[in-house]
Write a protein that binds this DNA or RNA. Structure first.
Lengths: 125, 125
DNA sequence: TATCTGTATTAACATGTGTAGTACAGTATT
DNA sequence: AATACTGTACTACACATGTTAATACAGATA
């Protein structure tokens, strides 16, 4: 499903959160699609189930997935604009990052072409 | 100079890196301006000098400041486009964040107005 | 010389991350 | 009812990272 960097200083469960979020955003994982079970994904990635659960819990708290005891974890349908807190956080992060990008020399045109590239979300890297 | 959140899960030295980077980007700290000394800033913020040094070291490795033994630490003049590695990192981060923002409901127009807001860097929050 | 600067090293402690094992509760299948 | 799957919770341990503390050294400055 994806690869992890065990040498990275970034925590494994946060790498997982990031990767899964990307898959959801890019619509590789569809609305209400079932994610691998905690134990199954742990086995696939040869890491501990607790670590998977930690990532799933984080994704759930951010509104990207929902979990049902006994059934599994699923992609939360993206009724846009519903997750207001996340949106506020992302807007602040974006503001900072845009300022940094411009400081480092990116032009507004470059950034706008990045937006176009990303818009629609049908790019799978 | 600024405030820190000691309850935050984010490391203090990383908060420092972030805050100082913002001040440099927004031109509050001018080219070659002297930063507070390691010990002085540590005293002001009532944290350990080692933590300040760790932040300064990180900022230096990212090209935002330079340090001279016996003299102090100073803002690195921002010859734009020179720090290619940082720019690449920021571009990748930006791409991810833009995708996330759009997923959460932000429009291209909103993002472009954010760019205009940030461009020039004369906003001090 | 005295005092400022950055830098380095060591030890101690707290916190966060990851693993391991176990357990419980809800769901589905047979 | 039995079995096997699901998420969830908990304890314990090991390890890495973050932070403090104390000390020391070297370069700059007055």
């Amino acid at each position: 499903m994806f690869e992890l960097d065990f040498r990275s200083r970034k925590a494994i469960y946060l790498q997982l959160v990031d990767k899964l979020k990307q898959l959801i955003i890019k619509d590789v994982l569809k609305d209400d699609e079932k994610l691998p079970s905690v134990r199954e994904l742990a086995h696939q990635l040869t890491i501990n189930p607790n670590t998977i659960q930690k990532a799933y819990r984080e994704l759930e708290s951010q509104g990207y997935i929902y979990s049902v005891k006994g059934k599994g974890s699923f992609v939360h349908p993206s009724k846009k604009l519903e997750n207001v807190e996340e949106l506020k956080k992302v807007r602040e992060q974006l503001k900072k990052l845009l300022a940094e990008a411009i400081y480092l020399g990116m032009t507004a045109e470059e950034i706008e072409s990045l937006i176009n590239e990303v818009e629609g979300g049908e790019k799978y890297d």
